[in-house]
Amino acid sequence: MPIHEKNLVDKDRLLVKEEAKLDGLDVSGQWSTFIEQRILGDYSTDVLDAVASTPAGKTIVNCWQCGTCTAGCCMHTDFGLREFNPRYFIYLAQKGAEDELKKYAPVIWRCVTCNKCVERCPKGVRVEEVVHSIEGYMRSKGWMGDTPASRWDEAFVKNTLQTGVLDELALTRSYVSREKLAEFNNRFMLRMALKLVRTGRIRTGPLRHRVKGWEKVRDVAKEILEGGGEG
């Protein structure tokens, strides 16, 4: 029977074939649309095991799906990004529902690390870290490449490792030019920098703080980072 009311079917599950042949008989046209079944045929521990084995992800097993994290998540609530639901990401990872998890590659990196979730979780799940660990798993699977957030993290770490103190101006400048962020034009940057220096929010250039004996600390930090973050 042809499928009526396709609007009621999850779009991802509608399969339209160019041509449909049944025993050599061409039944294309109305007959070439199929609905993929919704039944989940198995649970798997692959994602959970991978995430729980990372230092950032080990508290994933604590989660009991109460939703406190999502209820306070600024991405989910204030920014209105409905698809960004840390509680749900954790569940998909716990049950190994990879086909579903995959769909969230475009949004899972959107966390702004406000850490309200970590502060509020009644079960001690380090939600922000766990979600980043799940994101790492998705990247390792090739479901997503680097993102503005991961490039920021990279630039952040590189900048901090130089002297042990973050140079905000240099970081912003390098990041903005790399990402070609139009709204951060030279005039804007200059005005912001002057304001920040004047109010003492940042110190840059010769005024910048330095950490004494940073080289030793940096070596240890590098070693930890290369070892996947296990301290």
């Binding site: 919704r38 039944i39 989940l40 045929g41 198995d42 649970y43 799906q65 749900y88 569940y91 998909l92 049950k95 529902a97 579903e100």
Partner: peptide, 12 residues
């Protein structure tokens, strides 16, 4: 039914 996934499941 996995009521959190909102999907029917047939798990062995």
């Amino acid at each position: 039914e996995d009521t959190i996934l909102q999907r029917p499941t047939e798990v062995p």
